[in-house]
Nucleic acid binder design. Sequence first.
DNA 1: CTGTTAGCGCATTCAC
DNA 2: GTGAATGCGCTAACAG
Lengths: 348, 348
Amino acid sequence: MTPVRPTMSDVARAAGVSAMTVSNVLTGRRPVSPATRARVEAAAAELGYELNLTARHLRAGRTDTVALVVPRLDHPYYGELAARLTGLLAPQGRHLAVEQTDAGPHGELAALTQARWQLYDGVLLSVVGLTPADLDSVRTSAPLVLLGEQRMPARHDHVRMDNVRGARIATAHLLAAGSRRVAVVGGADPDPDAGMMPARTAGWVAAHAAAGIEPDPALVVPAPRADLADGRDAVRRLVAADVPFDGVLAVTDTLATGVLAGLAEAGLRVPDDVQVVGFDDLAASGFTVPALTTVDPGHDAMAHAALRLLDRQAGPAGPGGAGDPGRTGEHVVAPVRLVVRGSTRPVA
Amino acid sequence: MTPVRPTMSDVARAAGVSAMTVSNVLTGRRPVSPATRARVEAAAAELGYELNLTARHLRAGRTDTVALVVPRLDHPYYGELAARLTGLLAPQGRHLAVEQTDAGPHGELAALTQARWQLYDGVLLSVVGLTPADLDSVRTSAPLVLLGEQRMPARHDHVRMDNVRGARIATAHLLAAGSRRVAVVGGADPDPDAGMMPARTAGWVAAHAAAGIEPDPALVVPAPRADLADGRDAVRRLVAADVPFDGVLAVTDTLATGVLAGLAEAGLRVPDDVQVVGFDDLAASGFTVPALTTVDPGHDAMAHAALRLLDRQAGPAGPGGAGDPGRTGEHVVAPVRLVVRGSTRPVA
DNA sequence: CTGTTAGCGCATTCAC
DNA sequence: GTGAATGCGCTAACAG
């Protein structure tokens, strides 16, 4: 009457076979005669046997579970990424476990150095705040693929979006539709390799250069936390400072959604007074009022690439794949695409 | 030069002690002399030793990781819940791993019967589509707490919102502010125990009863997937069918956001022509245009309660806590609260 | 097709 | 305060 969980030996005894045969029935790694198989399955069902995955992991080094490590789970971007990855893994009988590090270098660095990723067959790490030096010092035991918009050490596999091009075509769209003073909300020192905000700001600069327009530095509005309130506050600040503007490139859809709220609050009409374009193509962005013109950052391509790179590491070199300091990683850039909706005016 | 990971024995050899002593240094479960401790720590650092968590788990039965299992990770409600739980666990040195089951009974039931939850110290399972019978048949090895709005078997611990009351006060607010024909988007057969939509519809019915109004069945609009498109389409359907309405109770904020999009599309003004109230108080709901009046379902209370129940199971009866068929679970109902914003008119 | 032996890396006895 | 033996539950490698 002890509620102790039965083990393979228990099942084996009940079925009159050895533990090895039970294992073979369960894993299918070696052929088993139908009769034996049936006896084992019956015994397992009878005893309510459940495989102990921890023991399997210790022995076989495999959990069939991939970790996705992100800064914040309450940001829809990561939720959508997680859902997409789960959808790709499920048909293969693999699982995704998502963990949050909280934004900032401390949490992310801790994430990397922690032994707990051994619980997983591989780790997809969304990097926001780490420096290349931080990343360079990293040794992980499990296969590792980095996701993020900053420059990463060459030895790690890395998947990112085409931020500069995305921001450039988005800004070009605003300019083509008549905006002349396009604010960049979430703007920063332009730099294609220094993270999401600098890279997208670089695209904003490039679009202006291509159009022969000198952008006003007053139109660069920082948004450190990149959340909804930051977007709304950016508009408040522009209005309060009397900086005229007739277009907004928000570097994320979340910021753009906040911008729409700020514009409504200020009594500015979208797209008539101010055109707005975002970046990320979140599910909700098709349902804002008005619906958001935005940049699809190649979600599917990123998810596919990330898993392909992970599997590539798991393959040849064994667990040492990412640990080899001399290794050269693969760096994938997903293609972007402009999605035109109601927050911008038709282009002639 | 083999990149094989060092084990405790390796560290022990390097430090000139036994593996047991290394373990004692790392766990602190037995006193170790400062000199020995220093030697062991130096050796561990030298070799780049990392504890093998899987082995510890097999031996000690503990991963310090709790699983949150949800239907969909791209639904902001679950992302926000996950972020909240992570925040509560982190200070205790514990972790949250989130996994998605995909909506529907099959995925959820599979989730429950799967042995893989052994990887975790406990499981918080968000239930949407399972019947009580499904749940009754469940034996999990790890501590289990159910989250969800339907009736659950008494033996499981369970945390839910006060759906009926939430929907009732939300609807009462619409009626008090002058609406007379309040549609319920995501409506279903009213029943306080049959899941989120029936329970919230029951609240809508109750508010009408209290106000002495007979609600028109034509105002009950189903929204099976409860996503943004369902919300927008509900408005399209009401308009196309010429059903007059001057208020909407959307049973989730996601639906409400879709409803706002649909109303904008139909040229109906919010709150002047139609007042809208949602349910869930998502982060984004403060930034829709106009901002959404909604029901705060007691997020914090739910998160706290869920973890408390999990820890309670882990404590006394050992791992058998939830497995005992004779056990009586605790059932917690979080308190709701109306959050008034711009999508409803001021109440006199 | 099936069984036997051995050991994954750690932590719990029990000894000293 | 430290060490030696033992086993958690499973599966690879070798029999047969």
